[in-house]
């Protein structure tokens, strides 16, 4: 190094937080804030259900079956006389957990495989692309139906013998559903990431980073993936919504969660017989919950994408 420049302004500077700017931009995104508020409220209400519900979610009461909303039962009761609000809360625990878990797993798997395929190219790319194609052409619903059937048949699923807990995660009967859904949820992310990486790796800043002596790993992690954040974020939010809906589809077909457990999707499925009757509200409540979550998550995704993008107009 040559002579040190004795400039007080230069030498007294302290690093400024990148996080601060990001947070400020995110907080100013009104739609995202509303989404975050709604989602947080839903999560808290559902997961703290044990603290506030007045009814046992499994307690049936023939005398109160199929009642409309009232002071005693805010959302009414289902056809077995169980408090509908209580059911919604417990169902939400399952739907939200499945939605988030599936979205994160499939985004992680998809982004990893996609960036590997795009960056290394050649036979690695060929292999991963073929696997993606394979998963895309297999009719997921058939495959999921088989898995769903297996779950409902066997209490102890093959790998489940290793116990009820793995690391900090309690293995429930819905864990196989999560993995089954993630198994068919990662391909889109992989494709999108691969395409992004393919175009990004030709950029001159990648060449410049290589000329500065950076390794492949460093270039992928520091230069390529940060440029994919926007796309990944949108995909993540979409797949949260997608996973909740996909789980509903499974439950609707009677292949997802089983009684006495329930999810929003299953509640919708159970209420499908009431379309056209005065008890159609049974369809509305879980449907409304689904709508709220999907919208909130999409708004949050919007906000995150804008906040991550340094070129966005907001300061």
């Amino acid at each position: 190094m040559t002579a040190v420049i004795e400039d007080p302004i230069v030498t007294s500077a302290k690093p400024r937080s990148q996080w601060l700017l990001f947070r400020r931009r995110f907080v100013r995104h009104i739609a995202a804030m509303i989404g975050l508020g709604t989602l947080t409220l839903l999560v808290v209400v559902c997961f703290a259900a044990d603290l506030w519900v007045f009814y046992d979610p499994k307690l049936t009461s023939i005398l109160e079956a199929g009642e409309g909303p009232s002071m005693a039962h805010w959302f009414g009761t289902d056809d077995n006389g169980r408090d509908y609000l209580t059911r919604i809360a417990y169902a939400g625990q399952l739907s939200l957990r499945i939605g988030f878990a599936v979205a994160f797993i499939s985004t992680f798997v998809g982004a990893s495989l996609g960036s590997i395929a795009g960056w290394f190219g050649g036979w690695v790319d060929e292999l991963i692309t073929r696997v993606v194609d394979l998963f895309l052409i297999v009719p997921a619903i058939v495959f999921l139906a088989v898995i769903g059937r297996k779950i409902s048949e066997a209490e102890a699923f093959l790998w489940w013998d290793l116990g009820d807990e793995f690391l900090f995660y309690t293995i429930d009967r819905d864990t196989p559903i999560i993995f089954a859904l993630a198994m068919f949820g990662w391909m889109q992310v992989a494709r999108v990431t691969r395409a992004q990486v393919l175009s990004l790796k030709e950029k001159e800043f990648v060449e410049a980073a290589r000329a500065a002596g950076a390794s492949s790993t460093r270039i992928i992690v520091r230069h390529i993936l940060p440029n994919c954040v926007g796309v990944l974020m949108v995909n993540l939010t979409l797949s949260i919504a997608g996973a909740i809906v996909a789980e509903s589809t499974l439950s609707f077909l009677g292949l997802g969660v089983q009684e006495p457990q329930t999810s929003w999707g299953k509640m919708i499925a159970d209420a499908k017989g009431f379309i056209g009757t005065e008890k159609v509200f049974m369809l509305y409540f879980p449907g409304l919950m689904l709508l709220l979550v999907v919208l909130s998550v999409n708004f949050i995704g919007d906000g995150l994408r804008d906040a991550f993008d340094p070129r966005s107009k907001q300061e």
Binding site: F205, P226, N227
Partner: peptide, 25 residues
């Protein structure tokens, strides 16, 4: 080569806008 690049032999690229990563300071 990586040990050489950017330390002993370095390059100034032509198109500075394209050669700087838009998401990094």
């Amino acid at each position: 080569m990586r040990n050489l690049r950017g330390r002993h032999i370095a390059m100034i690229f032509q198109d500075a806008l394209a050669s700087l990563n838009p998401v990094h300071r």
